[in-house]
Amino acid sequence: MTSTLSGDPRLKSVDRAIKKNGARGDALLEVLNTAQESFGYLSQDLIRYVARELHVPLARVYGVATFYHLFTFKPKGDHTCIVCLGTACYVKGAGDIVAALEAEYEVKSGGTTADGRLSVTTARCLGSCGLAPMLVLDGAVLARNDANSTLERVAVVLDGTPAQEAD
């Protein structure tokens, strides 16, 4: 098995999490959380690495990683837009926001544009229901959006290029 990981400085925090928990199998979730935080996503090599270091069967690591929604197995785009689809946001029109983003950037929710510039994801409820509909654009929480304001804001983060030219 050739690993692209050896010597990667980002492995340090993963190793720390493993060591902190005495390399016990029940630390799997915490180690995977740390791994994703450092690398942004869980690559095959990274999953193999965690399995080996924690002495847990690869099947179990894979089974746990795929069970939980927060783990992703593909790299994210340069920019991310998370649309909250909690109940309060939904009844105030968050579904339209997702549809507008999908149409404008030719991307399915949960995916990344072909040029790797924008990832569009949805969240179950970000717990700021007083601000519905809300979205998180590159880490910034934005309140009370509609389809148009969202497209404008996304266009701005994508280098200020007008939305229709962004793909």
Binding site: T87, R124, S128, C129
Partner: peptide, 11 residues
């Protein structure tokens, strides 16, 4: 593990 959409009391 407050998972209900529309709830943020525990948070």
């Amino acid at each position: 593990d407050e998972g209900d959409p529309g709830a943020y009391m525990d948070r």
